[in-house]
Design a protein around this nucleic acid. Structure first.
Length: 655
RNA sequence: GCUGUUGUAGCUCAGGGGUAGAGCACUUCCUUGGUAAGGAAGAGGUCAUGGGUUCAAAUCCCAUCAACAGCUCCA
């Protein structure tokens, strides 16, 4: 009898079982239940994700991953990427391979099809078909450990230049291959046991991508795909993507007549239509109200500033070339720039008079329109534009007040997000890249102070954050709030930035209790981020069904039995004067019934003006979900709706 | 900016070397008290812009502009 070691395997619930050394994840799943054998995709071993077929030879804490776990899906999609590479290699042998990872939703592979060859959508179908054939072969994903020299030799002989470059960066002794069928790839793993798990495949797109993400490198062809263990899951996913398209703010924005673009006006310069302007107005009014409570003062500054202003702030040196061009005037040597940010103007406002420590904090707010030259390929609906309005404010405070002020800004952002029901957001602390401090202005000491203040304030507010190095603004670290759009792209909305540098560059000061001059600390903040991007995300989150206090169309007027109803027009005008948006629906009555019964869930109130109502000078009011409220005079209705909107806004404050 | 795709009526799109099509929407009229009503008539397009090839270009070629997807970038 062969001598075998026993090892201890610990499960997530803390229980421990003994197994023979060399046991695999698959064996462990089998020892638990048959169902698990079918569902398990990869295994966590002491925090690392492993193949299910890789032997475990030491005591370990394990966790079995299925489709419900990111680690499980990751292995699934990573294996799908290899499968795609195998298909491409068999169909187009000249192809050289870059990297092919799993991503949040699916996988991609960067490939170099060779000189003069490019893939088309038709190729995707062919590759997809070949993948399905290969998947059915049930080829095993085999893991092999290799030495660096051997790996280099192997890939050099195949002229896989990208792989060779990758291997050169790897340490000897850590290199592994994975082989399935005819395809061997340099890969860390983990992978599925075999290709038969992959039942449904959809190659979703074709794009260019720079090798290793560097725009100086060659551009490879990136093929995106997604795969599932069941055909039905693929169908559901395709349906979900279709639904997401319906929520696209560019589609809804056009349909609801909120905004538009014109080639004549220019790329990335949105034109707000009356209804969109109304929506934006209400958002601004709401924030103004909140800010007033928090002690902000509104200011207004011009859209251009002397070049000297941006030289003082450091923006010119940093971004001058990339920003909009300098505007020159007939006056010799006079140069202006379109303002790319509001901070320098606000610094000058602070400087316009001496300040005592007793005045601080000073909070200047402005819905400031700024212009930035974004690369043309970056522009996207309302989320990335060249002219946009920040809900900007700058707080000047003493170093002691900094943390408290920072926390108050977090509160405002919470009020906004709560008001609009944004539940799924992430908070990101962006610090400077410690290896590249040249990119930033200001002393190390100030940076450290600012970074510490942000981290502590976020912690004290109980905010879960992810910390990212190298993402800070060039003048200071920041806390950003990100939300996802309809198809899962991340966008930065609210931002709070601590700045020790501009006060220094502008020589801002206040007189302290000691009768000496001190330098204030500055906070930049924009809870919405920009009105444009915020409205875009708002549209996609609500699919155009805005809350009552924002909705551009609150009321449907529906005259019954009358083609033309002069009384209805009167009501419409009265409502407009009270800033209540209404549409007069004098189309065929049957369509009116349809609106009443099917669409009332989108429209909070409906007014019905029939013959009876005309006779006694009233309207018949229906409230969403409540049915008839009965007849009332128009002024009574205006009071009702005004109270409801106020109540909604108050409720937001007292959340 | 880079790679790829696209640009035809207000919207969604078909067509395609011989001077423009559908559905929805719109206008006028008729019919109809019932869950996206039906009928009749009508209006609306230098087929993104500029150049080239051709007897002839919306169609083929080139350039420009714009949009879309991705990459890079993002104060």
């Amino acid at each position: 009898m062969r001598y075998t070691n026993m090892i201890k395997i610990e499960f997530p619930d803390g229980s421990i079982r003994e197994y023979e050394s060399g046991i695999t994840g698959m064996d462990i799943a089998a020892s638990i239940s048959n169902r698990l054998v079918k569902e398990v995709l990869s295994i966590g071993v002491n925090g690392q994700t492993w193949d299910l077929t890789r032997p475990i030879t030491k005591d370990a804490a394990v966790r079995l991953y299925t489709w419900d776990d990111e680690e499980g899906r990751h292995a699934f999609w990573h294996s799908s990427a290899h499968l795609m590479a195998e298909a491409i290699q068999s169909l187009y042998p000249a192809t050289k391979f870059g990297i092919g990872p799993a991503i949040e939703n699916g996988f991609y592979y960067d490939v170099d099809p060779g000189e003069g060859i490019s893939f088309t959508d038709k190729d995707l179908e062919i590759i997809e078909k070949r993948m399905t054939e290969l998947a059915r072969q049930k080829n095993i994903y085999k893991r092999t450990e290799v030495g660096k020299a051997e790996a280099l030799k192997n890939f050099e002989s195949k002229n896989e230049v990208y792989k060779v470059e990758l291997i050169n960066d790897l340490e000897d002794g850590t290199i592994t291959y994975y082989t399935q069928g005819e395809f061997t790839d340099l890969c860390r793993g983990p992978h599925l046991p075999d290709t038969s798990y992959i039942k449904a495949i959809k190659l979703t797109g074709l794009a260019g991508a720079y090798w290793r993400g560097n725009e100086k490198n060659k551009m490879l062809t990136r093929i995106y795909g997604i795969s599932f263990p069941k055909q039905k899951m693929l169908e559901e996913w395709l349906k979900l993507m279709e639904e997401a398209k319906q929520r696209d703010h560019r589609k809804i924005g056009r349909e609801m007549e909120l905004f538009t673009f014109s080639q004549n006006v220019g790329q990335g310069l949105p034109l707000w239509l009356p209804k969109g302007a109304m929506l934006r107005d209400r958002l601004e009014a709401f924030l103004r109200k909140v800010q007033k409570k928090y002690g902000y003062e509104q200011v207004i500054t011009p859209h251009i500033g002397n070049v000297q202003l941006y030289k003082t702030s450091g923006h010119y040196q940093k971004y001058g070339k990339d920003s909009f061009q300098v505007i020159t005037t007939p006056q010799e040597g006079e140069e202006f720039m379109l303002k790319p940010m509001n901070c320098p103007h606000h610094c000058e406002i602070f400087k316009s008079k001496p300040h005592s420590y007793k005045d601080l904090p000073v909070r200047f707010a402005e819905f400031g329109t700024v212009y930035r030259y974004e690369q043309s390929g970056e522009l996207h609906g309302l989320t990335r534009v060249r002219g946009f309005t920040q809900d900007d404010a700058h707080i000047f405070c003493t170093p002691e007040q900094l943390k408290d002020e920072f926390k108050k800004v977090i509160d405002i952002i919470f009020i906004i997000f709560n008001a609009l029901n944004f539940k799924e957001f992430t908070a990101q602390v962006s610090l400077r890249d410690p290896n590249d401090t040249q990119k930033y202005i200001g002393s190390d000491e100030n940076w450290e102070k600012a970074e510490k203040a942000i981290i502590e304030a976020a912690e004290e507010k109980g905010l879960q954050t992810t910390v990212v190095l190298g993402e800070a603004a060039f003048y200071g670290p920041k806390l950003d709030f990100m939300v996802k759009d309809a198809i899962g792209r991340k966008w930065q909305l609210g931002t709070i930035q601590v700045d020790y540098n501009l006060p220094e560059r502008f020589e801002l000061e206040y007189t302290g209790a000691d009768n000496k001059k001190h330098r204030p600390v500055m906070i930049h903040r924009a809870p919405f981020g920009s009105m444009e991007r915020f409205v875009a995300v708002l549209i996609e989150h609500t699919a155009g069904k805005f809350p009552l206090w924002l909705t551009p169309e609150q009321v449907v007027l529906l005259p019954i039995s009358e083609k033309y109803n002069p009384y209805a027009e009167d009501i419409l005008n009265t409502l407009k004067q009270a800033d209540i948006r209404a549409i007069l629906d004098d189309r065929n009555e049957k369509i009116g019934r349809k609106i009443r019964d099917n669409e009332l869930n989108k429209i909070p109130y409906m007014l019905i003006v029939g013959e009876n109502e005309m006779e006694n000078n009233s309207v018949s009011v229906r409230r969403q979900g409540e049915g008839d409220k009965g007849g009332m005079k128009v002024n009574e209705f205006i009071n009702l709706i005004t109270q409801e909107v106020e109540a909604q806004i108050d409720a937001i404050h007292n959340y």
